[in-house]
Design a protein around this nucleic acid. Structure first.
Lengths: 351, 351
DNA sequence: CGACATATATGAACCGGTAAATCCAAGGGG
DNA sequence: CCCCTTGGATTTACCGGTTCATATATGTCG
C-alpha cells in the first residue's frame, strides 16, 4: 500500500505542492474554493502528514520522551508508573504527540540517553521523574536546552518547571491523624534516601512530630516488598517498638503488614499501618490499608500539558497539584489501652 | 547548542557531504586515510545522525510501537506489562531503536492508532499483545503491510509471526499437580473470555481434567482484584464447592485468597490456590502463593528481536518460548481427609 | 488610464541525511 | 601510446514536507 503525499494531492488537484501545503495547514494564500477542493482530495486519499518530513523541517519531532530508571524487579508492582504514564498518554494522544519510553537501571545511563535523544532529534522534550537530591540530570538538560518538565520537587529543579504533589503536607496530615489516635511512637519506612521527595517527607515528619510532641523515626528501604518486610521486622524487634508505621509506598506497606502479623503482632490492634499511594494493592491486603491517595494520572496529565507548552516556547510555571488525601481503612486504630494509659499518665502529669 | 551535521564535518574535513556519509557508514568509496580523519572529526564534534533525516530517506523510522489496551485500573497492578516492556526495551535500546507507547481503552481505537502510525510514518512495526479470538487487528495490519509480531497464540495470527508461551502445557501441569494432591473438583477463575490465551487455557483444562477424571469448571473475570474476589465467593458458595482454584493472574489470586479466608475457608487447608504469573505479589500474600512462573521479559526480548528482523525484511518464524514452570509454595496442599476419603471410595467403587 | 495594492498561485530553496551517476587521475595491458 | 579499469572523490537527485520570494491576474483609486 502506498501512502499518498502532498505531491499526489497536488497532481490530482492540478495545483502546486505549496498550494496544497497552504490549504491543508489553514494558512492564507489559496482561495477558499481551492482550499475546499484540496481538502476534499486529501480526505478522499486518506492523506496524513509524514511526521518525519515535518519534523525534519522544523527540527523538532512531535514526540516526547520518558526514561524510567528503576529496577524492573520493583517496577512491576509499582502502580505509580502505569498511572503516571496513562495520565501523560491521555494528554499526548489527544494532541497527536507520541511518547517514547526507555528503561534503564542506571542514573548515568539515563543522562546519556538524554544526550543521545537530543543529538538524534528523537524527542522534542522529556519528562523527568524520581527527582534526586542534587540531581545530575538537571544541569545536563539545561545545558542541552532540551525542554523538560520535572515531576517532583519543589526545589532542586534549576530553571526547569516542576509539577509536584504536596507530599510534605500529606505526611503532616498522616502524623496528625495518628497522633490523634494516641500514637506517640511513629516510625516510617521510607523510599531511597537519595530521592528528593523522600527528603521532603522526612523533613515534614520531623517537623510535625516535634510540633505534636511525638517520637518519630525514619528508616530507609528501596520500595521492594522484601526491603519493607526487613525494615518492619527491624523496627518491631528494636528497643522502642513503634505503635504505628507509615510506609512510602503500598508495596512495602503490604509486605510490612504481612510480616508484622506473622510475627504475632496484630494490625491494627498493636500496630497501625498507613500506606502511601492508594492502589488496588491496599484493598488486596488484610486488613485493608489506610492510605494516602494521590491523583497520579492527573499529575501526569498536567505535566504533559506543561511540556507541550514548553516545547512550543510558552512560559510554564511550577505547579502544585491537588493535595493528596488520607483514606481511612482498617489498618489504623487508636493505641491500645496499656500504652494509651501510660502515655495518658505522662500527658496528665505534664498538664 | 547547535547539533553538528554531516555538512559541518564535510567542511571541517575539506571533503564532500557524500564522502562523509560513506566514511561514517562504513561503505567503500573513501580511502582509509580519509575515513579515519572523518571519523575523528565526527567523534570530536560529537556527531550523531539525525534520525529524522535518515528515516525520511528510507521511508521507515527506527521506532517500534506498542499499544496497550487495558483499563488503567487493572493495568497498575499487572506486573505483566512492565516486565514485557522491560524485556522489549532491553533489546531495542541495544539496537538504538525507540519504543513508542500508547494507551487506549478501546479495541477500535487501537486499530485506528495503527492506521495513523502507519500513515504518519511513525513506527516501522508494532507489537501486538492481548491477542483475541478472531482478532480484528490482524487483518488490518496485514492490509497495511505494517510489520508486526504478535505476542500470543499460537494460531489466529494470520500471516503475522507469533511469539508465545505454552499456556496450555502449563495449565495441564497445574491440573496434574492438583490432581496428584487428591483434588477432584478444580475451578479456574479466568481472564476475559475473548482473549485467545484464555481460550487456550480453558481447552487445556478441559482436556486434562477429562484425562485425569477430575471435575473442572471455569468462570470468567476481568483480571481485577474485585472480579477475582467476586468469582471466588460465587464458587465457594455454589453447590459443588471446589477444593482448588487456579487463577489466570496473580491479582485475582491474591484477592480470591483473601476473600476465601475472610469467608472462613482456610488456605490451603480447605482450599488450594494457584496463581498465574509469579510476581512479587505472590510473596506479599499469606500464605505465599503457588504460581506458574513465566519469563515474560525474555518473551518480550524475543519478540523485539523478531520484530527487528521482520522490519529489515528477514523471514521470521513463529517461536514458542521456554516452558513456564510451577513454583510450589504454601497455598497448595493435599485435599483434607473427609473429602479425600469420599472421593477415594467413589474411585474404589469404580475400579 | 496608468500606478499600485491585493489575492492567488507557482517555483525553488531548505531541513539532513543516502545513494546513484559522474568525474578524474593513476596504473596496467595490448 | 592509447584504451580501459579502478579507486577515490564529487555532484546531484531524492525523501516529503514548509516557507519565502516571485509571478500573474484582479480590482481600486487618483
Amino acid at each position: 500500500m502506498k501512502r499518498p503525499t502532498i505531491d499526489d494531492i497536488a497532481r490530482r488537484a492540478g495545483v502546486s505542492k505549496g498550494a496544497v501545503s497552504f490549504a491543508l495547514n489553514g494558512r492564507p494564500g489559496v482561495s477558499s474554493e481551492t482550499r475546499r477542493r484540496i481538502q476534499a482530495i486529501a480526505a478522499e486519499l486518506g492523506w496524513q502528514p509524514n511526521s518525519l518530513a515535518r519534523a525534519l523541517f522544523d527540527g523538532r519531532p512531535d514526540v516526547l520522551g520518558l526514561v524510567v530508571d528503576r529496577p524492573a524487579r520493583t517496577l512491576g508492582l509499582e502502580p505509580f508508573f502505569m498511572q503516571l504514564i496513562s495520565g501523560i498518554e491521555a494528554t499526548l494522544s489527544a494532541a497527536s504527540v507520541g511518547l517514547l519510553l526507555q528503561m534503564t537501571e542506571d542514573h548515568e545511563a539515563e543522562i546519556s540517553i538524554y544526550r543521545k535523544w537530543w543529538a538524534q532529534h528523537r524527542v522534542a522534550g522529556v519528562f523527568v521523574v524520581d527527582l534526586r537530591v542534587a540531581d545530575a540530570r538537571i544541569a545536563v538538560l539545561e545545558e542541552l536546552r532540551l525542554p523538560a518538565v520535572v515531576i517532583g520537587g519543589p526545589g532542586g529543579t534549576g530553571r526547569l518547571p516542576a509539577v509536584w504533589i504536596d507530599d510534605g503536607g500529606a505526611l503532616a496530615a498522616v502524623i496528625e491523624h495518628l497522633a490523634g489516635l494516641g500514637h506517640r511512637r511513629i516510625a516510617r519506612v521510607a523510599g531511597p534516601e537519595e530521592l528528593m521527595h523522600t527528603g521532603v517527607r522526612t523533613a515534614a515528619m520531623r517537623a510535625t512530630a516535634a510540633r505534636l510532641g511525638v517520637e518519630s523515626v525514619t528508616v530507609y528501604a528501596d520500595y521492594s516488598g522484601e526491603s519493607g518486610e526487613r525494615a518492619t521486622l527491624d523496627l518491631l524487634r528494636g528497643p522502642d517498638r513503634p505503635t504505628a508505621i507509615v510506609y512510602d509506598n503500598d508495596v512495602m506497606a503490604v509486605a510490612g503488614t504481612a510480616a508484622a502479623r506473622e510475627a504475632g503482632i496484630s494490625v491494627p490492634g498493636e500496630l497501625s499501618v498507613v500506606a502511601w499511594d492508594d492502589s488496588a494493592l491496599c484493598l488486596l491486603a488484610r486488613p485493608h490499608l489506610t492510605a494516602v491517595s494521590r491523583d497520579i494520572a492527573a499529575c501526569g496529565a498536567h505535566a504533559a500539558r506543561a511540556l507541550l507548552d514548553l516545547v512550543q516556547g510558552r512560559e510554564v510555571a511550577d505547579a502544585r497539584q491537588a493535595n493528596p488525601r488520607m483514606v481511612g481503612r482498617g489498618s489504623t486504630a487508636p493505641v491500645r489501652e496499656p500504652v494509651q494509659l501510660m502515655v495518658g499518665n505522662i500527658e496528665t502529669k505534664r498538664v
